[in-house]
Design a binder for these strands. Structure first.
Lengths: 211, 211
DNA sequence: TAGATTGTTAATCGATTAACAATC
DNA sequence: TAGATTGTTAATCGATTAACAATC
């Protein structure tokens, strides 16, 4: 059974990973919690606590942690080693951008199929075959796909979501600006432009008020 | 002077906004904190506390809050009414997707210019003119642009960021998978695919462990 | 009035930081 | 050994929830 972990920690782990990989390409083999913390402007105790949650390994006093082992531990904890297959629905601008993104494989996600309502014949984008939406349910079921990525316009997002869930997808990664309704055992992660803009606009406003 | 507000609350505000707009299009004119809370699976006290932070208006017992006034308060608090001009650098797949996205104006952001290293002549995408990167610093300075959106490959992201900052941009919205170094008075918001994938992968792993 | 909803004060919960002993 | 770094226990801080009086 896998440990429960605070979401706050979970969000920091990819950042640690990024810093650690940077250290590694700089030729380091060991690193201290304080080094990681300094790079990310976190407290060193926070980093130590987080790392203790994701690995059984203990750091070595006056030496720190072995870089490679630590990277492996975090990646394994995050599930980057077990490959999850995904489909992407909605091959518009955003869909194409995601299909061309190289970083998914490093995170244990592989987009194996794309679907679009306008796909009249099978084409491929970045080596991923694109099928018409009408064969979606069937293919997903047969291939036991676990992740559905929704990049359709918001008006069709819920309908697409319903088909994905019915076809057995376990997680939905939603880029449409709408809240989706799903059964309680389905994971939904919303990629939320409005949230980002809210944070940026509000911070900008503060800045203006102070200057 | 504008009130400080917890980031957690700030992230919930756009969600409230979305729910409130949905209520409004369903013909409602008033709503209670409990209604909003139910829709988002939050506690009603949390919603009341959050709303109290962003508006001077008081809710009316046995009636709730006036929808339209509440929407206006949140939007004004988030700074959606003061328009911030933005430029986008890197007109690849992702850049094009953002340029075609309609939702920015509702959030007080207007992408007025795009730049790309391969723009040999001025073209437009979705009515936004695209210039060559070499005229970027000059144009941004002259137009007093406040937000820079970075959608270039990660190897050129820091260089682009430096130019944006030097040209007077106050906030950076970074889509490149790299941590940017900026002066302390510059706002950076990272749009982080790896973070999202970390959350999804980890939750999927839990699911597998339990079933 | 009774009931629904409000806002506020106090209690709880969780996450971060401080202090410190342990150890290579 | 001395110094740097570790992990752990206790203290602090902040956010959420519970309890309750107020009011339309």
């Amino acid at each position: 059974m896998i440990k429960e972990i605070p979401e706050k920690t979970l969000r920091r782990l990819p950042q640690y990973l990024s810093v650690l990989k940077q250290f590694r390409s700089a030729g380091e083999t060991y690193c201290s919690a304080a080094q990681i913390a300094a790079e990310l402007s976190f407290s060193d105790i926070l980093v130590r606590k987080d790392l203790a949650l994701v690995t059984e390994d203990k750091g070595v006093p006056n030496q720190g942690r072995e870089l490679l082992a630590l990277i492996r531990s975090i990646e394994s904890f995050l599930g980057y080693n077990t490959l999850n297959e995904a489909v992407l629905v909605g091959v518009g601008m955003l869909g194409r951008a995601l299909l061309s993104y190289k970083g998914f494989n490093d995170c244990g996600v592989d987009i194996v199929l794309g679907f679009d309502i306008r796909a009249d014949k099978v084409t491929t984008i970045n080596n991923t075959p694109i099928y018409h939406t009408k064969v979606m349910a069937n293919l997903i079921k047969r291939m036991h796909i676990s992740i559905g990525i929704i990049t359709v316009p918001k008006d069709s997002a819920q309908a697409v979501c319903d088909v994905l869930v019915a076809a057995g997808v376990k997680a939905i990664w939603n880029f449409a600006p709408i809240r989706l309704h799903v059964p309680s055992d389905i994971i939904v992660h919303n990629e939320n432009m409005a949230e980002s803009l809210a944070l940026i606009s509000n911070k900008l406003q503060h800045l203006g008020g102070n200057s």
